[in-house]
């Protein structure tokens, strides 16, 4: 069977991907609070949040970030990723219960590294809701393997 993963050599600057949508539910937020231990009232106290500028509970920013990481795997064929090295991220707006988010990603840059068997791929990522509003955006850096024998 051939390796279905995409290598540094295969990935082109300017490529764009769009994921399927995912509806963020109350259950997602409750599970994430339980898993992470982050019980901030923003995510867990419906009565308190009625009085806030959001009017209701909102998803943890890091839940949205983690969901987009999951959506990335459904947006394109897997990369031959060796390591995730970092990100720069902005939270632009709330994700509320019942919102449906999707990921739009674009290959912004490819760079050689000191090691000849790998390269750095920078992706621009935008998380949009059902109204097309950007709720999160940023850049992620991945180290991706080169095809064996490629120059």
């Amino acid at each position: 069977m051939t390796d279905p993963r995409r290598y540094f050599d295969d990935i082109q600057v300017g490529e764009e991907y769009e994921s399927p949508g995912r509806t963020v539910t109350e259950a997602d937020i409750v599970l994430f609070a339980g898993l992470s231990g982050d019980y901030n009232v923003l995510h867990t106290d419906a009565e308190f949040m009625k009085q806030s500028i959001f009017g209701e509970r909102i998803a943890h920013g890091l839940l949205g970030l983690s969901i987009q990481a999951g959506l990335f795997t459904r947006a394109t064929q897997a990369y031959a990723t060796l390591a995730f090295v970092g990100l720069r991220w902005k939270f632009k707006g709330p994700i509320k219960i019942g919102d449906t988010i999707r990921l739009r990603a674009k290959v912004a840059a490819k760079k050689e590294t000191s090691k000849p068997d790998r390269g750095l791929v920078t992706l621009e990522r935008t998380v949009v809701n059902q109204r097309g509003e950007v709720v999160q955006e940023g850049e992620t850096d991945l180290i991706v393997e080169r095809r064996r024998g490629s120059p």
């Binding site: 997602d28 599970l31 994430f32 898993l35 992470s36 231990g37 982050d38 943890h60 890091l62 839940l63 970030l65 983690s66 969901i67 990481a69 999951g70 959506l71 795997t73 459904r74 990723t81 060796l82 390591a83 995730f84």
Partner: peptide, 20 residues
């Protein structure tokens, strides 16, 4: 919960420690 997985068995997904 998230659909985000580690690259190989035994490793921890990179964003999970941050969430914790």
């Amino acid at each position: 919960l998230t659909g985000d997985a580690a690259r190989e068995h035994g490793l921890v997904p990179d964003l999970l420690p941050l969430c914790l």
